[in-house]
Simulated assay, not measured.
Amino acid sequence: MTVHRYRAFGLEIASEIELSVFAPGRSNEVDVEIRLAEHLSDPEDAEAMRFRNWIARPGLMVLDVPDVARFRIEDGRRILVEPAKGCTPADAVPHVQGSALAALLQQRRTLPMHAGAIETSRGAMLLVGTSGVGKSTLTNAFVQRGYRMMGDDVTPISLDAAGRPMATSGFPASRLWADSAEYFGHDISGLRRAQRDLEKYYVVPENWCDARLPVAVVVILHVAGNGQTRIEPLEPAERMNWLLRYSFRKKFLNGFGLNELQFRMVSAMAAQSHMVRLVRPARGAPAADLAALLEEALGFEPVVEGERVDETA
């Protein structure tokens, strides 16, 4: 069986499943294996936590996506994938890239945030919010302004030796609804569909930042029914609440016994990053205008070629 070599989320990956929007691997070392499997069993530990479609204990999770695949995520090093009857490995790809890798990142003691990320002159800027709030659209608006995308929807956070929160790049593609892709001038007939049952398409930026950068700015995205677009400061207590809310697949942390890890990461971001909330109406707030507003209000700009850090996430 062909084994593909990729790089994503700062990890070198050897995969039996094609993950075409991941960056090519750039090292002979392998941090993570993704393999096809059959008859994946549940954890035998009677004390494992059970929650809807997953079972977990420290270092192990079995995740069921009905009518798609079963996943077994082990020790931050392996993802085993058993496609459901009538499904192909390709059907499992969105869930490998999402929940399965999020669980694996947590096992490796990093905190995945529900956030896009952009490289700026001040460090990484996180665009945080729930699905459908406009993270990918705003990320692409910054790309059109000369910024480099680090990630589209999930950004892993870790702490460096000095205790600074650091953001690691994901993979070089964003997922846009058809109308958003067309807003940025893309012909969707030439784009790869991100998921067969959704009108979402992969858009690959010309430049991608593969790096581990300090988290300088966190923008909480919030859609209001009406009113003016505005940027609001956040009090310390609010910061913690928003960051806890938008930890990606946060319930997994309970199963892994990693709630203290989440608290440490969130506390560091709340204390050391510039945090604001961007409130916009549901209609009539073009992404290009929002990007320009944030750029001016927060005082950052794209990184020029000669000043970029070594890209060694």
Rank of each mutant, 00 (worst) to 15 (best):
Y202K: 01
D187M: 09
P205Q: 09
E182P: 01
R193S: 07
Y183T: 13
R193T: 06
I188A: 10
R196V: 09
V203I: 12
R193W: 06
D197K: 09
A194W: 00
D197G: 08
E199D: 14
D197I: 09
R175T: 10
D187G: 09
D187V: 10
Y202W: 08
V203F: 07
P205C: 02
L191S: 01
G190C: 05
R193Q: 14
P172I: 08
A194Y: 00
I188K: 10
R193F: 05
A173I: 03
P205T: 07
G190N: 14
E206G: 10
V204D: 04
G185D: 09
W177L: 08
D179N: 13
Y202E: 06
S189L: 14
A178T: 10
F184C: 04
I188C: 14
S169C: 05
G170F: 04
A194T: 01
S169W: 01
D187S: 12
S174R: 06
G185N: 11
S174F: 04
G190R: 13
F171K: 01
L176G: 02
Y201I: 03
E199S: 15
E182S: 14
A173V: 05
I188N: 09
R193D: 04
S189F: 15
D187P: 06
E199R: 12
F171Q: 03
G190W: 05
Y201F: 15
P205A: 05
D197A: 13
I188T: 15
R175A: 10
F171T: 01
E206Q: 12
Y183R: 15
A181C: 05
G185A: 12
G190F: 08
A194N: 00
A178Y: 02
D197L: 12
A178Q: 11
V204S: 07
L191G: 00
D197Y: 11
R193I: 05
Y183F: 12
R193C: 08
E199A: 15
A181G: 07
Y202G: 04
H186L: 08
Y183V: 08
A173Q: 08
G190P: 10
A178I: 12
P205K: 03
P205D: 08
E182T: 15
I188Q: 11
Y202M: 03
A194V: 00
S189K: 15
R193P: 05
P172R: 07
D187E: 12
E206V: 04
F171Y: 15
G170V: 06
E199P: 13
A178E: 13
L198K: 12
P172G: 07
A181T: 03
L191D: 00
A194L: 01
A194G: 00
A194I: 01
F184N: 06
A173C: 08
E199Q: 14
R196H: 14
S189E: 15
Y201Q: 04
D197V: 07
A173R: 04
G185R: 10
